[in-house]
Structure formats: structure tokens, C-alpha cells
Amino acid sequence: MATKTLVFPGDIISPEVLPIPTNPSLPLKLGPGLRHVPPSTITSTLAGPLCIDRKKNAIWVENNTGRYIPQPNDLIIATVHHSSTDIYHCSITPHTAFAQLPQLAFEGATKKTRPQLNSGSLIYARILSASKHTDPEIVCYNPSTGKSEGMGELKGGMLFDISMAMARRLLMHKQKADGGIALLEEIGGKVAFEIAVGRNGKVWVKSGGVNETLLVGRALQETDTQGLGIEEQVKVVRRLMRQV
């Protein structure tokens, strides 16, 4: 998964670079930043490093900056803007079309027992559908099991902004091995806290007191903006711990 070529918009990805699938029936997957021009040209549309995953037969251009574009199955933190008869209108990123959250799309919600959300409340939700032609639709439960799986309203706590790449790293399966993040484990050894990470570059933290919440948020933001390694993260956590 490691090819470090930098591509620019308009560059043609040469066929030699494309991964050769181990299983011939597996189609090539084009991720963000690439565009297929029929019949068989692949050009890049973003500037960034070209990444190739040979196992999944996927190729994409990594990007960190810019506005979050909703993609199906992403976990996001949204703000309820207003509600209509049976839909909450939620904002995922500022100044974009509102996402629709059906009022019954919560665990165990019925017509009589549905959660009452005021404008301004935060919700942790999954994107059900999103396309460039329609407004995104989000839900707070897993439609196949009917369970909330941690989604729903986020009560109390604080919201912090992080970069989209940092959010991706925090949501990785093996956070420390793949994402290079050790600070949550480090803080978790001393302070109890809850955390929710949204792919739209938001992180929500809740703990016993304001000081501890700010500690987690600051440590995350510092790691993000300065690109700290694992050892440096431990140092930052120790330094911030002393102030609490």
C-alpha cells in the first residue's frame, strides 16, 4: 500500500502503475481524486500522493484539506437545525444543504416514543445515502439490526474541530498501529472520558469535568496541527496532565 508518487490535476495515471488484481474477477476501484475518462484513461483530479491497495484492487489520491463531502456509511457528528413534521433537518458542514434525519430513525422509536431534539443539539449518526444530486439522508440506528450502536443524541460534553485526516486516523481499526495515535489510550489510563469521532472533522468529548474534557480536546488538536508522533503525543499528554 505504499507508493509515494505525487499526482496533480490532469495527470494521466499510466496503466503500469495500476494494481494487478490477485483475483481477476475483482474490479478496479477508483477512490477520491480519480476520474475515469472512457474508454480506458484514468486521470487525477486532485493534488496529493497516489495510494494503491493491491489486496483490495483500489487506487485513490489522499487529501486532507477542504470541505467534507458526505459519503454513504460515514459516521458523522451533525447539529440539528430545525424539525418539520417527521424529519429533523441537520447540518453536517456549514452553508451546505441540510441532511434529513427521520424522527423515527432511532433505536426503539415509535410514533409515540420518539426522541425530542431541539435545534442546536448534537447527534452522532451514519449517512444512509448521499449523492451529488440529492440531499444526504442520515440515521441514528443500524437498519439491519435496529440497534443504536452508539449513535444518537450527544448530551453534554464539548465539540472540537479536527482535520479530516485526523478523524480518519481516529476511526481506524488499529488506532495505534495504523493511525499512529496513542494519546487516547494514554489519557484513558488516568482520566475516564467518552469520545465520538465524526468523519466531517468533528470530535465530541465528555468526561467528569470541564478541565478533563478540555485536556482531551487540546491534546487531539495539538497532535493534529503539529503532526506529532507517538512519543511526542505521550509528552503532550503528560504536560497537559500536570495543568489539570
Binding site: F8, P9, R35, T45, L46, A47, G48, G66, R67
Partner: peptide, 8 residues
């Protein structure tokens, strides 16, 4: 901004 471009 990572806006998709056809060229620079």
C-alpha cells in the same frame, strides 16, 4: 481546497 480540477 481539494476541489476536483481537470488541469492546473
Amino acid at each position: 481546497t481539494s476541489i476536483p480540477l481537470s488541469m492546473t
